[in-house]
Computed example of a mutant assay.
Amino acid sequence: MLTLERILTREAFARLEPEWDALLVQSAADTITLTFDWLSTWWDVFGEDRELMILIARDSGGELIGIAPLLKRTVQHFGVLPFKRLEFIASGEDEADEICSEYLDFIIKQGREAEVLGAMLEHLISQDSEWDEMVLTDILEESPSISILRNACEDAAMSWRILKTQHCIFLPLPRTWDEFLKGLSRGYRHKITRDWRAASSLDTELVVVDKPDDFANGFDTLVRLHQSRWIEKGRPGVFSSEKFTRFHTRLAAKLLPKGRLRIFILNLNGEPLAALYDFIYGRKVFYYQSGLKIADTPIHSPGILIRSYAMEVAIEEKLTECDFMKGDPAGYKSGWQGKLRGILQVRLARAQSKEAIYNTTSKVIAGLRSIKRAVS
């Protein structure tokens, strides 16, 4: 028999910390963006104007076997139509502040997804006045949650729609560096070996920042390199957001002592040339952000060079996968010969009068956009 409980306060959320990650590693959704550290830090930075709506499930023995890491807020569709929305914690930020917490999901003990998520959805659907729509962002296309959600919508006569499909690029790591190089295209292999030779003949140094005492200087270097490059392109850069920067400085204080975060800095003649910001979790490395100095040097591709150094370190550490996270499958990340994972944004909504207005208005706007594209 399952017992469901709502977690509505930050204090109750905090009390789950000892059990949260223990359940996460037993789930099919095990990833760094669903750890207690990541989600609680996000809530502390972005929780204003939102309400916690976490739902947990325990079995007859009191063991935690399911977490729905949800929040509630009110959104205005088309500027005039208010909807009470449920969504994952760590999603729904303003675009300028967006953390990009990929692979969000329900956290459920493997083998019990249908039972536990089914019970959670039945409970949530029964709460008529609590919410109008559920928008779940960056959930894996292959997640067992997808079919359970779709079936629940059909049973409850609710609407189901995939709003967006994107891709994360990942690269399985072989056991040796030589195997890794052989798996690359000839062009990329040439770029790496060319810049490795150039770097070996220059005054270069690779600095690895993985201790709390070194973080402030390393992070400052990353931010300066990243911001200067994007500002030169006429764009603000992600660290122009105070909330984005605050999230990462707070998260680092939690992850560094656990060996889950590091920054690589490539120096040339004593000056930073490139920086790379990584997360490490579950034998995987996640390449999250970078910064490059625009300079005329014998190193043609400092971004590729520092990533190749980081991959060599990951292979030496016997990590099994490099995840480039979300990106254009045809963009610069594609040169690493990676594979693709689909991630979805899905919307569930109750059948009600304002949902009909939403659907009609959405169709009208889509039609107008098609006409505009046709005549432009």
Rank of each mutant, 00 (worst) to 15 (best):
M1F: 01
M1Y: 02
T3H: 09
L4D: 02
L4P: 01
E5G: 12
T9V: 08
R10Y: 02
E11V: 05
A12I: 05
F13K: 03
W20A: 00
D21H: 07
L23G: 04
L24C: 03
S27H: 00
D30W: 04
D30Q: 07
I32P: 11
T33K: 04
T33C: 02
L34Y: 00
S40V: 01
W43E: 11
V45W: 06
V45P: 11
R50G: 14
M53R: 14
I56F: 11
A57Q: 12
S60P: 04
G61A: 13
G62D: 09
E63F: 08
I65P: 12
K72C: 10
V80M: 09
V80L: 11
L81C: 08
F88N: 01
E95T: 13
E95L: 14
A96S: 11
E98D: 13
E98Q: 11
S101T: 03
S101C: 03
L104H: 04
I108E: 03
Q110V: 00
G111R: 01
R112C: 02
E115V: 03
V116E: 02
L117M: 04
L117F: 02
L121M: 06
E122N: 05
I125M: 11
Q127E: 07
M134D: 12
D138I: 10
E142S: 14
P144R: 11
I146Q: 08
A152S: 14
E154N: 08
A156Q: 02
S159T: 06
W160P: 03
I162W: 05
K164E: 10
K164N: 10
T165W: 03
F170M: 12
F170W: 09
L171P: 04
P172T: 10
E179I: 06
F180A: 14
F180R: 12
G187P: 09
Y188R: 12
R189G: 11
H190D: 05
K191P: 03
R194H: 04
R197A: 09
E205T: 11
L206I: 13
V207N: 11
D210M: 04
D210F: 01
D213T: 01
D214S: 00
F215C: 00
A216C: 08
R224E: 15
L225W: 03
K233D: 14
G234M: 13
G237A: 06
E242K: 13
E242L: 12
F244A: 15
T245D: 15
T249Q: 14
T249P: 09
K254L: 10
P257C: 07
R260Y: 07
F264V: 10
N267S: 06
N269A: 14
N269R: 13
G270V: 04
P272L: 01
L276G: 10
L276R: 06
Y277K: 10
Y277M: 10
D278N: 15
R283Q: 14
K284N: 12
F286D: 14
Q289E: 15
I294H: 13
A295N: 13
T297P: 15
T297H: 08
P298M: 05
I299Y: 07
G303Y: 05
I304M: 04
L305C: 09
M311Y: 08
M311R: 02
I315M: 01
L319E: 00
G327V: 09
P329A: 14
K333P: 08
S334V: 01
G335R: 13
Q337N: 15
G342I: 08
Q345K: 08
R347T: 05
R350D: 00
R350S: 12
A356D: 10
T360V: 14
S362F: 13
K363Y: 12
V364L: 13
I365N: 13
I365F: 04
V375D: 04
S376K: 07
